[in-house]
Computed example of a mutant assay.
Amino acid sequence: MYLTRFRINTARITARKVLSSPQTMHAAVMSSFARIPVQEDDGPRVLWRIDRNSRAETYLYIVSPTKPDLTHLVEQAGWPTTGKWQTYDYEPFLSRLSKGDEWAFRLTANPVHTARRNDTEPTKLTAHVGLQHQLRWLLQRQEAAGFRVVEKPGDRQLIPGTDVHEVIIRERRQLTFRKRGSSRPVTLATVTYDGKLEVTDPEALRRTLTRGLGRAKAYGCGLMTLAAA
């Protein structure tokens, strides 16, 4: 597995066009591979995420089974004469994950649930829109995903019993775009979580980091990355 980081030149019109549509970015990411990796539900896959750290600092992160070639993105959305991307072998880091380790994490996800307005209607996927529901979505998946979101000491909880976990929702976006060949718009609600976790099951967490968490993985959701806490 490989982890790649590419800085996007947001001053360029072509860069803003790529950023405006998850479908366009998905196509650009998948074009980075001479042979598109097989996307299996139970195996490693191509995951990507856009991090907007500031107005002038936007990064594309990619996790993939093979190395990508982002030459086309440098030409369209980077700095053609000085821009480059960094690709790292991800396996040594993944192999060092141990139970009890604590890491800072970032995850962009598509928190949804099934709902219906009455008993006569079929259930359908509906986005969680409230902060508490979006947080609960993450907490409900942490055990199976191999981690536990760290809890704050009581004296650091702004609202005791409510502000319990070391996690914030830093960005919420609603994107509307069209899939290729379809005239119907697709609306995608995304949430970016920043927080601190403890590894509870290293193997399960490795699966989470390489297979993604939640839905809409093709459209920039599901990629969790770790950094020193």
Rank of each mutant, 00 (worst) to 15 (best):
L19C: 04
L19T: 01
L19Y: 03
L19M: 06
L19I: 04
S20C: 15
S21Q: 10
P22M: 02
P22K: 00
P22L: 02
P22T: 02
T24P: 03
T24N: 12
T24C: 12
M25C: 04
M25I: 06
M25P: 01
H26F: 07
A27T: 15
A27V: 14
A27G: 15
A28W: 06
V29F: 00
V29C: 03
M30C: 07
S31N: 14
S32F: 07
S32P: 15
F33V: 07
F33W: 07
A34K: 14
A34D: 12
R35G: 07
R35N: 11
I36F: 12
V38K: 13
Q39W: 13
Q39N: 13
Q39H: 14
E40A: 13
E40G: 08
D42R: 11
D42P: 08
G43M: 13
P44F: 00
P44H: 03
V46I: 14
V46A: 05
L47F: 05
W48Q: 05
W48T: 04
W48V: 03
R49G: 01
I50T: 08
I50G: 00
I50D: 01
D51T: 08
D51P: 05
R52Q: 10
R52V: 08
N53H: 12
S54T: 13
R55K: 14
A56C: 09
A56L: 09
E57L: 04
T58L: 09
T58Q: 14
T58H: 11
Y59P: 03
L60W: 01
I62Y: 00
V63H: 05
V63D: 01
V63N: 05
S64N: 07
P65V: 10
P68N: 10
P68F: 05
D69M: 04
D69L: 04
L70G: 04
L70C: 09
T71F: 09
T71E: 10
T71V: 13
L73E: 02
V74R: 02
V74M: 08
E75C: 08
E75V: 12
Q76E: 14
Q76A: 15
A77K: 00
A77E: 03
G78L: 05
G78M: 04
G78I: 02
G78Y: 03
P80I: 12
T81N: 10
T81K: 11
T81P: 05
T82V: 14
T82K: 13
G83R: 01
K84T: 15
W85P: 02
W85V: 05
W85Q: 06
Q86C: 14
T87S: 09
Y88F: 15
Y88L: 15
Y88A: 15
D89R: 12
Y90T: 03
E91R: 14
P92K: 06
P92C: 07
P92G: 06
F93E: 03
F93V: 06
F93C: 06
F93P: 00
S95G: 13
S95E: 13
S95L: 13
R96E: 09
R96Q: 13
L97S: 02
S98A: 15
K99W: 13
K99Y: 12
K99H: 15
G100L: 05
E102N: 08
E102R: 08
E102H: 08
E102M: 06
E102P: 02
W103M: 01
W103S: 00
W103C: 01
W103P: 00
W103R: 01
A104N: 08
A104I: 05
F105C: 01
F105L: 05
R106M: 09
L107I: 00
